[in-house]
């Protein structure tokens, strides 16, 4: 029951945020607001979700947490593949990303896909920000519902 609620709420958030400014530029859709909503959400919820976890040893440990427990808690599944170059770049691959799984698979709605991943990019960025990892999170969709999240850690 609550799964559907989140999906619907998420879609509605997208509609609401994007309708406020889409007269201008059809080509360059500005998803900043949507991402920031995700950022704020991720930042706050991570406090609750890491409450029972032991202390993270290092950055990789934190990323693994995001891929397993965190993703499980929010998206009801784990990340299917985590790759890293050990230099601060991580790629998280979700082959059945929850918010894209309601759209038909393949390339039909590829153009609309970015809207559905912007929020999640923000959630990841916000969560990591609160765990003292400053990063840039972008996403790439090649074929729905599979999605790749790119995390680039900013070493200050």
């Amino acid at each position: 029951m609550e799964d559907t609620l989140l999906d619907l709420l998420h879609s509605e958030i997208i509609n609401y945020t994007l309708q406020n400014g889409d007269e201008k530029d059809k080509k360059e859709e500005d998803l900043s607001g949507l991402e920031y909503i995700g950022f704020s959400t991720g930042y706050r919820i991570i406090e609750r979700l890491t409450k029972e976890m032991p202390r993270f040893k290092d950055e990789l440990d934190t990323m693994k947490f995001i891929c397993t427990d965190f993703w499980l808690a929010v998206y009801k599944k784990q990340i299917d593949n985590l790759r890293t170059n050990h230099q601060g770049v991580y790629v998280l691959q979700d082959n059945a990303f929850r918010f894209l799984s309601r759209l038909s698979s393949g390339k039909q709605y590829l153009e609309a896909a970015p809207r559905y991943v912007a929020f999640t990019c923000g959630v990841i960025r916000g969560s990591l920000a609160n765990l003292s990892i400053q990063c840039l999170v972008t996403a790439e969709v090649q074929s729905l519902p599979s999605c790749k999240f790119h995390i680039q850690v900013q070493r200050m």
Binding site: E28, L31, L34, E35, L110, A113, R115, L136, E140
Partner: peptide, 20 residues
């Protein structure tokens, strides 16, 4: 951050990937 949608096209003008 300023987040923008990106659309990447293959050589035959077909949409290959989209992302942010």
């Amino acid at each position: 951050l300023r987040i923008k949608r990106t659309l990447n096209y293959k050589q035959d003008k077909q949409l290959a990937t989209s992302g942010i």
